[in-house]
Amino acid sequence: MADAQGVLVVGEVADGNLTGLTTELLGAGRRLVEKAGGKVGCLLVGAAVSGVANDAIAYGADVVYVAEDGAFEPYAAEAWLPAAQEAAAKASPAAVLLGQTSIGRDLAPRLAFRLGVGVSMDTVAIEYDSKLHFTRAAYGGNARAQLAPKSLPAVATVKGKSQDPLEPDSGRGGTVEHIAARPAADQARVKVLGQEKAKVEGVRLEDADVVVTGGRGLGGPEGFQALEELAAVLGGAVGASRAACDLGWYPPSAQVGLTGVTVSPTLYVAVAVSGASQHMAGMSGSKNIVAINKDPEANMVKAARFAVVADFKQVLPSLIEELRKLRA
């Protein structure tokens, strides 16, 4: 594809709205085409997605490709692939961007192999000079790798909160095109029997302005009670390290890190979290990190703005009380 130009974003819609990450991808796409030329396309796939086409345009899309059919939900790679392929053929982009989400992780590599091109996963920076460059974490967050595609289009998944969305502009112009591909439901080889969505009480972890996270150092699931109390005082959400989730102390949907959720709150309170690289990969974008840890050498203490080096059991009750007083 010598004439490959522009960006195709594979968007996601949740609860009838574009996801935050989709708006971030559109912002990244806009900034790329300002340098490299071409248009920003946005593919929307699902049972009822045409209603948000105008939102996609307001956030930076020039062309919205709509693939609307009940059979696209719940997501399955084999159902979405023909739609993505058709949109890529129509847009002939230099880059196809997806979110580093359950869908993006599953779809992007397969789409790249179908197109015969390379893929950069969990990308944190996208640059363009005379060619595209993607930066991503490797070795559990210990290293950064910069990759350049050898052929176009390049496929990339992008980490949440790594790109800024544009201010939505309802006056922006754009067009809507329909994608003809439909999943052959009767030939589906993967059948979803059921889904169980995690209960979200209060604010969603990835949207929270304050996140309180517990790690292996809590010593047991009961430690999370104090964390929930602290999060409630701060109006935040509770997260957990992978170690704590693996031990069954907290649900995996609350896992912050490389294989879990990425957060970038104003305040991140890490309680008894050592700060393994794979955890840091999910929260290092936090604006202010507070570490509460017995070990002054813990990685999290070094990464923090403020650290309390003490046993969390003795710190948290007083901290909750002090914060209540301040907030009263």
């Binding site: 950064r144 990759l147 070094k302 650290a307 046993d311 003795q314 007083s318």
Partner: peptide
């Protein structure tokens, strides 16, 4: 390969931590 590895490096992170002082955990809090 379909991607060229242009650079592999270790990001530099400098610690700017302020360790909170206190006679007791309650005072630190």
């Amino acid at each position: 390969s379909r991607m060229e590895l242009e650079r592999l490096y270790v990001p530099v992170v400098e610690s700017q931590v302020e360790v909170i002082e206190g006679e007791s955990p309650a005072e630190m809090a």
